[in-house]
Each structure stands twice: as structure tokens, then as C-alpha cells.
């Protein structure tokens, strides 16, 4: 089952990745080869085998409810691409006509 260029473009949209035409072409052929290789997992008869999500068994983990110091506002904003009035400044998230 070959991965089409349209499928790759769709995956890029889902992944929020702006890709050039050249990148789309390269990725289409590379993903095809990689998916062909990893599809080998289908050879394993694993019908009733439980999946592993985590290597070491864990149940819910809680911490004691103790107040401790957190990052200051200045520290939290120090690495921001843009900040204003003590907040992260971000591009608009709604269309102009909404």
C-alpha cells in the first residue's frame, strides 16, 4: 500500500508542519519504505496479548499536598517569543470575521 503525496500533505496538516513541495516528495517515498519495514509487526500472532503502555507497572501516583515555591512570573516569561503585561502574547486565534 503506497503512501500518496496527498496523504503526506494531509499528515503534514495534522502535524502542523509547513513542508515544501520537495519535502513532500521526499517524505512520501521515505515514509513508504519505513512503513513497509515497520508493518512487519503484523506477522506476530498477538490477538489476545495485552498491550504494554509502560515498562514498569504503576498505578496512580500521588504527591503529598504540600505548597512549594513555583517559577516566578518573570522566569516563566523570560523565554517567551513575545510577552506583554506579564502574559504570553500570541497571534490571534480566531479569524477576523468570527
Amino acid at each position: 500500500m503506497a503512501i500518496t503525496r496527498d496523504e503526506v500533505a494531509h499528515l503534514a496538516r495534522l502535524s502542523r508542519l509547513a513542508l515544501s513541495d520537495e519535502e513532500l516528495g521526499t517524505l512520501a517515498s521515505q515514509l513508504d519504505v519505513i512503513i513497509g519495514a515497520v508493518a512487519r509487526v503484523a506477522e506476530v500472532a498477538a490477538g489476545d496479548i495485552p498491550p504494554t503502555t509502560h515498562a514498569v507497572p504503576l498505578t496512580n501516583v500521588f504527591r503529598a499536598d504540600i505548597t512549594r515555591t513555583s517559577l516566578s512570573q518573570a522566569d516563566a516569561l523570560a523565554g517567551a517569543p513575545a510577552a506583554e503585561d506579564g502574559r504570553f502574547r500570541v497571534p490571534r486565534i480566531l479569524d477576523m470575521d468570527e
Binding site: 515497520v38 508493518a39 509487526v41 503484523a42 506476530v44 498477538a46 496479548i49 495485552p50 498491550p51 504494554t52 503502555t53 515498562a55
Partner: peptide, 14 residues
């Protein structure tokens, strides 16, 4: 077919 099956293979490897 992919992620789910890989997690089962992970169990078999353990």
C-alpha cells in the same frame, strides 16, 4: 494495526 499491535509486541518482548 500499527500502534496497538506494536504495544502487544512490546508485551511479548518482555
Amino acid at each position: 494495526a500499527y500502534y496497538g499491535q506494536a504495544q502487544k509486541v512490546r508485551t511479548l518482548i518482555s
